[in-house]
Design a protein around this nucleic acid. Structure first.
Length: 636
RNA sequence: GCCGGAGUAGCUCAGCUGGUAGAGCAGCCGCCUUGUAAGCGGCAGGCCGUGGGUUCGAGUCCCUCCUCCGGCUCCA
């Protein structure tokens, strides 16, 4: 048979030859260094027979940054981990151990719980395995043989997996350890030049909290120690951008045991908060939204009608009044209030769409262990709105919202990942309604050139939705905005409008938060900018530093002049050296520093930009520069 | 909620196997009078998260609870 190499040349091989055979046919070095083969673009174990006419590409240890090469390396490292665990902890049950974005993990059920300081010994054992020259042997066996084998080894999780795996079942053996595995794997362990076990965590079998909790060991591996070092360095740098750290450093907010999950916003943090509120309010007004304010507390009947009492009760705060028997509950969402508001008057089709916007505070009693800085809080402020439309208006309305999304996120130079979630199996409404609703969402995404992934079946029971996601500095994905079509809640509240046919119709409601929660959005922004906010968002936009005591008056006058133009200006007249005050301004990421001494006047100002660039400008020039930058808040 | 880790000065962190708490930065007070990323000296600052236990003695060991961190689950 023949296979085609990347340079389009053909290689003649005996029938049944594997990727490894192909490598050997080309040269001994390639045979030694190859880690996997891509056959017609698909990652494949080197031991699997190639097929006639396949285009093959041999990937070697020199492709150390190739995602597939790292994947195989880490997958094999996971098997070494399992082998080490089996040797050090007799009786351990092994579950699954895949490679992941930055490494790998393996889930175990240990006879006794293990502690983090035991990882070092396991890691040492893994190194020993590598030093001993582990090789992987691939076997393909019938299901029953695999089950029999794992039954003999008393590995219940593997038995369960073998019962479900597609036949034929492949097994990989290294040393005296055999694992049920799809592969591919390295031919041998020698390419694993650097590895590190990172952490220990609990993880439920099959990701279901009703199942037993297993112990997960996370690790990572690379083709070189330098790559591992670089990876650890990247993690360290990411920690420096963590919004929790920057929030403290820049005096933006703090969190307290006195009210877990509820940030205390400091004056400087409030500047950013208010800038976002201004943006939200101004754009809402431009786009036909009406701002409303609805109560924070409602009686239980309201939540029973909305369905929250039944479906969301464990996340709600209940409060007792001295009056009345039943508790009230703090709203976890604005929708019930907006339903009641809509229902408070008789509505005509001529009134629609009605767009209620509100950014009041929501409270959600999140499960312990899930809170995270500003990114997961109990005190939530959304740029929320509920839009009541007729079915015919859905398309246009969604289209406007996607345009709105683009406008908002472009302000910050970020691109959220959009996810379209379509009809789940359990759902309300007719197929025709779902067809139209999904089409409306999809076509709006397409029209605005938004990239998106579709998640079939992930919509809510009451309608499809578009979610917007962003990634934090630790690589975790967070939901930001959401646009959800809802046919049900208006009906639950008995909402109607009078149609042109003089009959009552149910409106469709679109739940929509575009930035999502302001808390979360600001958290992501802090990390995105690493605290160096663009001028229009900067808590302090310029700091004036008088060189000596004699310049304080002039510096204050300059501050007053610029503040009078609406800029946020401080004077740093502390009794510190100029160098120290410059340094502090840099650390605080102040966009402009104006040094004022004997050489300066209104005609000649010494302006230092964040990062170090220096220039001289007249006051008028400076003001017009600042004006231009401030206008970024509201571009045409 | 679950697994693992951790709570020491405003912040970042030391404090080995139990013997009465320490640094840097910040703060305050002086000196210096500053020209583009840390001038010098001094002072003050702690219920060692909470409650209990072991011990002659607990920041240190054990238990409870709270909170935080990394995961898992959850996240209309």
């Amino acid at each position: 048979m023949k296979v085609v190499l990347p340079d389009s040349s053909e290689l003649e091989l005996p029938d049944g030859a594997s990727g490894l055979d192909a490598a050997r046919a080309i040269g001994p070095k390639l045979a030694r260094d190859a880690v996997l083969v891509r056959a017609n673009g698909h990652v494949q174990d080197l031991r699997i027979p190639l097929e006639d006419g396949q285009k093959i590409e041999l990937v070697t240890i020199s492709h150390k940054d190739d995602p597939d090469a790292l994947y195989v390396l880490r997958h094999s490292a996971a098997h070494l981990l399992a082998e080490a665990a089996m040797r050090l902890y007799p009786g351990v049950k092994i579950a699954i151990g895949p490679p992941i974005a930055d490494g790998f993990y393996y889930d175990f059920e240990f006879p006794e719980p293990i502690a983090e300081d035991e990882l070092a010994a396991i890691e040492e054992e893994m190194r020993r395995e590598i030093a001993e020259g582990r090789e992987w042997v691939r076997d393909v066996v019938p299901r029953e043989a695999a089950i029999e084998r794992f039954r003999a080894e008393e590995q219940p999780y593997k038995i369960e997996l073998a019962q479900e795996a597609d036949e034929p079942i492949s097994l990989y053996t290294q040393g005296d350890f055999t694992d049920l595995c799809r592969g591919p794997h390295l031919p041998n362990a020698s390419p694993i030049k650097a590895l590190k076990l990172m952490s220990l965590a609990g993880a439920y079998w099959r990701g279901d909290e009703h199942n037993k909790q297993l112990t997960r060991i996370y690790g990572t591996a690379f083709y070189s120690q330098a790559d591992l070092d670089a990876h650890l360095e990247r993690l360290e740098q990411a920690r420096a951008r963590d919004h929790r750290r920057i929030g403290t450093q820049l005096d933006l907010f703090h969190l307290s045991d006195r009210s877990p999950g509820s940030p205390f916003w400091h004056p400087k943090g409030m500047v950013i908060w208010n800038a976002l509120e201004d943006l939200r309010r101004r754009e809402n007004r431009r786009r036909g939204y009406s701002e409303v304010k609805t109560p924070l507390l409602y009686d239980l009947d309201t939540y029973k009608t909305s369905g929250h009492y039944e479906n969301y009760e464990e996340n709600m705060f209940f409060v007792h009044s001295h009056e009345g028997e039943e508790p009230m509950a703090l709203k976890p969402m604005n929708c019930p209030g907006h339903m009641l508001l809509f229902g408070s008057e008789l509505r005509s089709y001529r009134d629609l769409p009605i767009r209620y916007a509100e950014s009041s505070t929501l409270h959600r009693d999140e499960r312990g262990g899930t809170l995270h800085g500003l990114l997961r809080v109990k005190h939530i402020t959304q740029d929320d709105a509920h839009v009541f439309v007729t079915e015919e208006q859905i398309q246009e309305e969604i289209d406007g919202m996607i345009d709105f999304v683009r406008y908002l996120y472009d302000r910050f130079g970020v691109t959220p990942r959009a996810e379209l979630s379509t009809r789940p199996e359990k759902r309300l409404g007719t197929d025709e309604q779902w067809d139209r609703a999904e089409a409306a969402l999809e076509s709006a995404l397409q029209r605005h050139g938004m990239e998106y992934v579709t998640s079939p079946g992930e919509g809510t029971f009451y309608g499809p939705k578009i979610d917007l996601h962003m990634t934090d500095v630790l690589g975790r994905s967070w939901q930001m905005g959401t646009i959800q079509l809802d046919y049900q809640m208006p009906m639950q509240f008995g909402l109607t409008y009078m149609g042109p046919d003089n009959r009552e119709h149910s409106p469709v409601v679109i739940h929509r938060a575009l930035l999502g929660s302001l808390e979360r959005f600001i958290g992501i922004l802090i990390e995105h900018y690493a605290g160096a906010f663009p001028f229009w968002l900067s808590p302090v936009q310029a700091r004036v530093i008088p060189v000596g005591e004699g310049h304080r008056e002039a510096a204050s006058a300059l501050r007053d002049r610029l503040a009078g133009d609406g800029f946020r200006i401080e004077v740093d007249e502390r009794d510190e050296t100029l160098g120290k005050r410059i340094r502090d301004a840099e650390i605080e990421k102040v966009p402009f520093v104006v040094v004022y001494g004997d050489r300066e006047s209104d005609d000649v100002l010494a302006v230092r930009e964040r990062g170090g660039g220096q220039s001289t400008h007249s006051l008028d020039e400076l003001v017009s520069t600042l004006r231009e930058l401030a206008a970024e808040a509201d571009p045409p």
